[in-house]
Every structure is written in C-alpha cells, then in structure tokens.
Amino acid sequence: MRALLRNRIVRRAAGTAGTLFGVAVFVFVMLRAIPGNQITAGLGTEAAALTPAQQAALERYYGLDQPLVAQFFAWLGNMFTGNFGYSARNQQSVLDLTLRSLPVTAELAVLSIVLALLIGVPLGMLAASRPNAARDALGQVVSLAGLSIPAFLLATTLLSVFAASFGFNPNGQGFATLAEDPLLNLRQMVLPALVLGFGIAAPILRTTRAAVLEVRSEDFVRTARAKGVPERRLQVRHVLGNALVPIVTMTGLQFGYLLGGAVVVEQIFSVPGIGRQVLLGIQQKEYAVVQSTVLVIALAFVLVNLLTDVLYRVIDPRVRAS
C-alpha cells in the first residue's frame, strides 16, 4: 500500500514536472515567434537607424547573440538555482518582481472568489429551491449578466461612476500593500474584486443550481425529509453538503484562472499583479520576465488543482474511501 502511495506521488510529481517543462518550451517558442525583440520593443522605429555594429552591440547586451537552444537551457538551468532572470526595464530580478506581484494577485483572487461564492452559492440554492419560479428567473438573470457583461465594461463604468459622482477612486492613489496600509489596500481591492467576483459568480451559481437540483432528487433527501429533518438543516447539511464536489471543482478552476492574472481588471484599476507583469514583459519582449512568470503561474495552477483534490477528500467520504 505504501509502495503504491509512493508510486502515485511519484507519478503525480512526474506529471507535474512534464507539464511544467511543456509550458516552458511552449512559452519559449511562442515568445520568439512573436515579431520583434527587445531591441525593437525598446527603440521602436528608431531601431531602423542602427548601424550593424550598434545592432551587434545591443544583441550582445540582451543575450540575443546566443543560439536559441543555449538560451533555453541557460534560462531553465538558472531557474533551478533560483535565478529567474533579470528585468532591465525594472532594474530588478524577476524573482523579486514576482514576490511582489504574486501576493497581490493571490489577495485579489481570494477576495474575488469569496465574493463570487457569497453571490453564487446562495443565489444558486435559491434558484434551485423552486425551479421555473420568479426566484429561478432572478438567478438566471444574474448569471446571464455575469457571463455576458465584459469585465472591461463593468470595470470602466464602475470606476467612472464612482470617481465622477462620489469622488471615490482609491485606485488613483499609489498602490498600497496590506502591510503598508491595510485599509487603503482593501479599499483599492473592493472594485476589482467585485468586478471579478461578479463574473465568476455566474458559473458558480449555475453549477450550484444544477448540483442542488440533482441532489434534491436523491432518495436520501426524501428519506431525511420523511424522518423529519428540519428544512433548513436538510438544505444546508444534506443537499448542499452533497452538492459541494462540482462547486469546489468549478471554484478551483476559476481560482486557478485568477492566479493567471486578471490582466484587464488589473490594468484598469492599476493593480500591480502578476497579470500586468506578464503583459508588460510581453510588450517589452523581456523574455526572462515572461518565461519565468508564466512558469510560476503554471506551478500555482497545478498547486490549486492539488488543493482542490485534497478538498474532495475532505468534503466527500466516498473519495476518501476509494
């Protein structure tokens, strides 16, 4: 049994390593397939005025004179030693940049998920409590709005309305981390988390509604009700408890996507998260920034999936038993 367990862990670790290596190769190749390089990204059309000697000097400076395979393995090898590369634009190591931006995105993701769950789960249960009734229609309207209103539109509208009408725009101030100024930080996170949370609430609402409807038709629910279990306890303990697996799956997936960076929302609200770090890296063709950051995001996604699997075991005894 222990050998089997070890085997499964080894298999999972190997799968993770393979996934990350695939991501590394893919990002490396895709970045170089995009026209331009750090020289043209930095100089723009002025790059046309470079003499061959100037061009060669800049290629040496950015390490572009090395063969691609050498560039790839040099970068990957450095990653194993904790050297994620260096951002000439920011004058900082990519590791330092990531250590600053990843927690910001993680905080935004958690707040968004909490808001999404607060909106999606109760409304989903409400909708499922009486299918095709007015409350179900309300749930459908909310989920349709969440799915169909683009984040950029909602974000821009909220920002403009709050700033112009109420003078409320904490995001116009310099960004503060939780450690620096918790109150300002939370005020700066409110609108972006609301925009993201509203969008994510929609699939959670739909998943909750479908899962609850399915569980409600199970025999054990009828039995529990016949045995006189109070309705409130029945809905929360028996119905929602057994409907949690698909809800957790959906939440885990959405959380993973959020860690990948809610680029648009981060741009509009000037939140210095990991999505913006990747975007700026792509714009400036800072290969090391993009490659290393994407790898960190991929790793975070894998870890969230792992956490989701662990949660299955916590919430569903059948998974534990198997």
Partner: peptide
C-alpha cells in the same frame, strides 16, 4: 474540514500579501 481548508487558503494568501513589499 472544508471550511478550515478554505480559511487556511485565505489566511495564507492574505499573509503572503501582507509580506509583500512595494
């Protein structure tokens, strides 16, 4: 258990955020 795990995730990420320096 599920609640604890969710709370742990939230606490961890907020702690990470508070450790971040700008």
């Amino acid at each position: 258990g599920a609640l604890s795990a969710a709370a742990l995730a939230a606490t961890l990420s907020l702690a990470l955020a508070s450790c971040s320096s700008s």
